[in-house]
C-alpha cells in the first residue's frame, strides 16, 4: 500500500486505498468487457490513471467505483473506434483465460460465444447482466440510446441462440 502512495503522491492517499480495494472487482468487469486478460489490465490501468488525475473533483467518493465502470465502458468504446470496424470471426485469435478457467462446461461454452459477439453487443450484456445496470444506465454508460441498448440485447440473444442450439438455455428463448 505504501508503494502505491509513493506512486500517486502523498496528497492522494484515498485514491490509493480505493484502487487497492476495488482493483479485483473492476478487473473482472474489464475482463468481461474485453474478453482478454492483457487488454483488461491495460484498459483498467488507463481508466484508473484518468480517475486518479480527477480524484479531487469526484464529489462522492462512494460512487467512485461506478464512475470507473462508466469510464471502462467509454474507454473500451474508444478502443473499438481506434481499431476500426467490428469484425466478427469464426475463431478467436487468443483463447486467453477462457481455456484455463475452472468453471462449468456449459458456462464456458456460452462465454466463448459471448466473447465472439461484436464488442458493443458484449458490453451491453456485461453492463446489463453482470453490472445489473438498467437499460437507461447502460445507454448512459455506452453513450447510446435506450433503443440501441434494446436492439443490441435483442440481436445478442438471437446470435447466442443460433450459436448454441443444443444447449439447454436455447430452449428457454421465446
Amino acid at each position: 500500500m505504501r508503494e502505491v502512495f509513493l506512486v500517486v503522491s502523498d496528497s492522494e492517499p484515498r485514491f490509493a486505498d480505493f484502487m487497492a480495494a476495488s482493483w479485483a472487482r473492476l478487473y473482472r468487469t474489464a475482463y468481461l468487457l474485453t474478453g482478454d486478460p492483457h487488454e483488461a489490465e491495460d484498459l483498467l490501468q488507463t481508466v484508473l490513471a484518468k480517475t486518479c488525475v480527477r480524484w479531487g473533483s469526484i464529489r462522492d467518493k462512494r460512487a467512485a467505483e461506478a464512475y470507473v465502470r462508466r469510464g471502462l465502458a467509454r474507454e473500451v468504446q474508444r478502443t473499438w473506434r481506434r481499431r476500426g470496424r467490428e469484425v466478427v470471426t469464426d475463431s478467436l485469435p487468443d483463447p486467453g483465460h477462457a481455456g484455463a478457467l475452472a468453471t462449468r462446461a456449459d458456462h464456458l461454452a456460452l462465454w466463448q460465444e459471448i466473447r465472439n459477439l461484436p464488442p458493443r453487443m458484449r458490453a451491453t450484456l456485461v453492463l446489463r447482466y453482470f453490472e445489473d445496470l438498467t437499460e437507461a444506465q447502460t445507454a448512459d454508460a455506452l453513450g447510446c440510446s435506450i433503443g440501441s441498448v434494446k436492439s443490441q440485447t435483442h440481436h445478442a440473444l438471437v446470435r447466442l441462440r443460433a450459436a448454441l442450439p443444443d444447449l439447454e438455455l436455447a430452449k428457454e428463448l421465446p
Binding site: V4, M19, A20, W23, A24, Y27, R28, T29, Y31, L32, P37, E41, Q45, H97, A98, L101, A102, T103, R104, H107, L108, L110, W111, I114, L125, V126, Y129, F130, L157, L160, R161, E168, L169, A170, E172, L173
Partner: peptide, 22 residues
C-alpha cells in the same frame, strides 16, 4: 436465457484471477 447469461458472466468473473497491480 438472461438467467444463463447472468450466471455465466458472474461465474466467469469469479473464476478470473486478477493480476497484481503493476
Amino acid at each position: 436465457m438472461t438467467t444463463d447469461i447472468r450466471e455465466t458472466l458472474h461465474d466467469i468473473g469469479a473464476a478470473v484471477a486478477p493480476p497484481v497491480i503493476d
